[in-house]
Amino acid sequence: MLASLLEYDFLRHTFITGIIIGFIAPLLGSFIVVRRLSMMADALSHVTLAGIAFGLLLEKKTGITAITPFYSGLGFSVVGSLFIEKLRKLYTAFQELAIPVILSAGVGLSVLFIALADGFNADLYSYLFGSVSAVSKQDMYIVLVIAIIVCIVIFSIYKELFLLSFDEEQATINGIPATVIHTFFIILTALVIAASMRIVGVLLVSALMTLPVAIGIRLAKGFKQTIIYSILIGELSVIIGLIIGYYLEMPPGGSIVLFLILVLVSIIGAQHFKRRRLTSNMKSDVRG
């Protein structure tokens, strides 16, 4: 595979893009999980799907190629994130209501655009589950720009975002502009979802943001360590998932997510076994 990596540009682009999203998806995902917004990522990925379907429809019906499905997916994702924020403000007592509303709107629009286009070919399939050969040089550069923006914002407002995630009331007393930061955060999430879709696909993108964190939380002490572990696990899953995807000729979204599930189940099992052994040792100490 190393030889192919050196030989084919598209494979190199895919791997570099994979490494980038293996870093930014769990980085942002750490905040998404502790803020209990995991489902929001799912809702946004479905809106992104609508954007992709819109872009494919535009391509098919008008021949316009300037707005690629990647760009339209990105645009829909960001607009969807702003709608989620608006709905959360309208329904302050039922903020989670914004998620099914936006999710169903995303699916509804996707169905509409697919119907209008009389179906799509394999293109849509690669957007749904990712592809080892779908990343262009331009896509790679856009993902790189998104990654730089995400890293600058997260590292600049890390402590504000952390406090806001842990104790919103205290953050407000400290004069932190909670609404502004939250809006920025949701837009960043939309950008990362759009950036990740070529590798893992829109249907599995939220898994790359949350599964590494689900594993990291079980291993780490503290939040910084959780982020570091999540990124390491994210990177490992992308690399292994892409290699498996390449050799088995399957979409990498599936192999990445299945690898993560396997790691999660193994760790839960190992911790359960360790706890049981510890309890039984304690019991025998008491008896002895």
């Binding site: 402590k159 842990f166 932190i176 780490a220 002490k221 503290g222 939040f223």
Partner: peptide, 13 residues
Amino acid sequence: PATVEEVVEMGLT
């Protein structure tokens, strides 16, 4: 997932 140290650091925000 926050250590005691991380929680106290929040007071410096």
